[in-house]
Every structure is written in structure tokens, then in C-alpha cells.
Nucleic acid binder design. Structure first.
Lengths: 158, 158
DNA sequence: TATTGTTATACTCTATAACTATA
DNA sequence: TATAGTTATAGAGTATAACAATA
């Protein structure tokens, strides 16, 4: 009796996704994992740990913001933000200044070194994104972006 | 001299995203965080830690698979898979059986309890997803799904 | 009283290494 | 030799609680 070609699912090379495959969230997660994994590599090569890049970018876009606001924006506890800012300062990419308005606060600013790092990282981010998303032509990419914007706006502005 | 209405970005309620806002990956991440956060809550309520649900779903869709294959599929180390399967067994949702083909392997199967949990969790997952994505009508939802599939296929089948 | 930043601490998640039993 | 599963352990990442300074 010859061995069956497809004896059972265990011996298949590719696993089944089953009902998991019906969900958009599942696809989002896999694509996002791919993007963030690839980009973490880029960040680490420049000396930043995953997550510190977005903190630096937020500081750049909001000069003078406090650590508490930064923490809320990137979804960290304020105690975790201390370590992030320590690290950015140690790398010479950002700095704390005393806020003149409220002496409890640290006003955060990027340095020239930090801005240069951001230029480099944003360029790499664009390449990573292009590598993953370029199966879609410019037209479909625009459609995707618009659809995600609509979801994004309804979730975060409500 | 009257105080300016928008003195600087620090006092704004809503922070600027700056160049971060130009990237699709950034929107994906925020939407996905929202979805996975909401769904982790649902999983935990049923006794599963985040990540254990997808393991259970993969076992259900691939009865008899080994721990090593499960680990690869969900992106964990084989040692981490041990703890996941221990947990699922403790909850009576899955079980290990000795593989008849290869006595090193554990063949994994869901139990009736596990299948019932999956039915409940998939229903909740659908509600969570609907809550986040329902700003898009059925037509746009279909477009989004199709676009993500194209990206997904090009990334994971190459 | 509440908030900002800080430290210390604990907890979860994941990875690494060494081991055994099988192949 | 290589693989499957296990254990012990160590390292991130993150959250909680308590505190001093300031509002």
C-alpha cells in the first residue's frame, strides 16, 4: 500500500489558518509585524532601541513638550519615559530643559544630532515601507492610505 | 499685550505627528494596537493570556501538529511554546498526545472545551473588529481586505 | 490636592543554553 | 548528527508604588 501524498495536515508544509484567516485584524497584525520588525533593525543599527525612534520623532514635531505628554502619546507609563529620554540624552539626540512656565516640567527638544538621525531614519523607514507595500501601485496605495485614515480618525478622534 | 491663542505647540491639546503621519506603517500600528488591545481584554476574560488564543486557533485548524510547528507559526521559541501548551492543557482546552509516527513529538489537539472557547472568542473578535472598522461600509471593507491580502501574499509567499 | 519627574521593584514575555529521548 | 520537548535562567519591556518638588 503506497503512502498517501497528503496523509494529513500534520505533514503539510504550510499550516492552515482556519477561521483566523477571516479577520482583517489578523492580516493587519502580520503585515505590521513585518514592517515593525524590519524597521526595528534599522533603528537599532543607528543606536536606538525599538520605540525610541517614535519618541524622538514626536519630540521633533512638538518641541518643548513635557515627558508626561510624550508618555501619553507613545503609550508608555511616565516612569518608562524617563528611561527613554535618558537614553536619547545619552546619545546626544535630545535634551531636557527646565520649563519656564512650570518648574516641575522638563521641556524636551531634539538636538542637531537627533535631527540628523531622524532624517536618516525617515529615509530608511520609507524604503522599508516601500519594500513591503510596493506590490500595490501608487493608485491602490493611495486608496489603502485613505481607508486607513478613515478608520484611524474614527478611532482616535472619538 | 494679550496672550496668543496658540502660543506654541506645548500648550496644544493634540500633539503633532509631524513626518510620522506620512507613513502607512504608522497608521497600521495605531489601528492594530487598538484592535489587539481590545481583543487581549476579551481573551484574558476567558482565562487566556494574549497570544494563547492564536495558538489555540492554530491547533484547531491543524489537528495533530507538533509543538515545534506551532512555535514557528506563532513566532515563538520552542521553549516558550511549552508554557503556552502547558497553560492550554491546564485549562482543559487542548491536549498532548504522543505522535505514533515520531515518538519525540507531541501531537496537539483541541478539546471540546477548547473548541467552545474558540467559538466564543471568534464571536468576540468579530465584534471588536466591527467596532473599530465599521466606519467603512461593507464595500470599502471589502476593498481594504483585498488590498491587505495582496500585500500579505506578496510578503509571506515570497 | 493634583501633577511632574524620579527611583525602586515586580511582573510578563521572550530568548539562550544545556539536557533527554528519540530519529 | 540532528530534531522535539523540557527546564533553568537571563534579559528586555512595561507597570505599580512611593517619594520630592511644584502647582
Amino acid at each position: 500500500m503506497a503512502a498517501p501524498i497528503r496523509p494529513n495536515s500534520v505533514n503539510e508544509e504550510h499550516l492552515e489558518l482556519g477561521r483566523l484567516g477571516n479577520f482583517i485584524g489578523f492580516r493587519l497584525r502580520r503585515i505590521q509585524n513585518q514592517l515593525s520588525g524590519a524597521f526595528s533593525t534599522q533603528s537599532v543599527e543607528i543606536g536606538l532601541r525599538p520605540g525610541e525612534f517614535s519618541a524622538l520623532a514626536i519630540i521633533s514635531a512638538n518641541p518643548g513638550l513635557s515627558q508626561a505628554k510624550l508618555a501619553r502619546e507613545v503609550g508608555l507609563d511616565k516612569s518608562a519615559a524617563v528611561a527613554v529620554v535618558d537614553d536619547l540624552e545619552r546619545l546626544g539626540m535630545a535634551e531636557r530643559r527646565r520649563s519656564p512656565d512650570d518648574r516641575r516640567r522638563h521641556a524636551l527638544y531634539t538636538t542637531e544630532v537627533g535631527e540628523a538621525a531622524l532624517v536618516k531614519l525617515f529615509a530608511r523607514l520609507a524604503l522599508v515601507e516601500q519594500d513591503v507595500l510596493n506590490v500595490l501601485g501608487p493608485r491602490d496605495l493611495q486608496v489603502l492610505s485613505t481607508l486607513l485614515d478613515r478608520v484611524y480618525d474614527s478611532v482616535f478622534r472619538k
